[in-house]
Amino acid sequence: MNPIIKAENLTFSYPGDEETGPVRALDGVSFEIPEGSFTAILGHNGSGKSTLAKLLCMVNFPDSGRLWVAGREITAEDAAEEDILAARRDVGMVFQNPDNQIVATIVEEDVAFGCENLGLPPAEIRRRVDEALADVGMTEFARRQTYNLSGGQKQRVAIAGTIAMDRRCVIFDESTAMLDPVGRREVMEIIERLNRKEGVTVLLITHHMNEAALADRILVMNGGKIYLEGTPEEVFGRPEAMWAAGLDVPQTTELAYKLQKACLDVPLTLFDPASCAKAVADAVTRAKAGAGKEARR
């Protein structure tokens, strides 16, 4: 299958000041995002993940390397206007600050904004907006003012806006970073559903390990490079490597790692607290049984 996003050896530098010279934010980044996949990009602040997001939403353009979005090459600033527009039609972004991406005062009008830009007929926009609002569970808020919503609800409105545009891929740029735990859970549920049920390609840029653990594949960025790449099991199965890059692993992994050091056999890659607890209990029972046998002998 064709990848929806393909990056080849991307580099990007910020101008920086006179003393430091240009600051290199991306240093030879290559990856492919297959259509329909759920990929998480992890990295601490300054790892280059936000810079990468800016290249993907075509705000900045790479200094060198090549980038394809939705089958169109968007490498240089002088990429054809219609290519950029077409790429944006297929690939949407949901940003970090819910306040700064909502355009309209009324919920349904904000959801409609993107479709209105596409020039769809009003009846079609109405249908899509109602459907998108139902998808994110915000139907009853349709006529409310966006200002009075909670952070999680605002992000759901923003997601509804991209759903209404019927996009193939949505990039979430730390979309849960400013939310409380309840809002974060609501938004993550919708993101997962979007990918699993609707088949929308999801690219989740985050620094929450638990969110990344939901993905099919994780790219870990560090120092402007792809540092680790693989399934959550592969990436979090190497906690030392993550810690070396100044990153965390899910709490369950950290617990299992410490227990392993204490000679309890608990797998590192159970990210769900319940199954982790069960594994620990089993390991303890097994250890006890083992100890009992030793003593009898």
Binding site: V59, R89, G92, Q101, V103, E109, N117, P121, P122, I125
Partner: peptide
């Protein structure tokens, strides 16, 4: 600045060819 980026990402290109849901 952020709003402008968000609007561009939602295919906003000005009034040309725009329709309205609630006319």
């Amino acid at each position: 600045d952020e709003l402008a980026t968000a609007m561009e990402c939602r295919c906003y290109t000005g009034g040309e060819g725009r329709t309205r849901m609630n006319s």
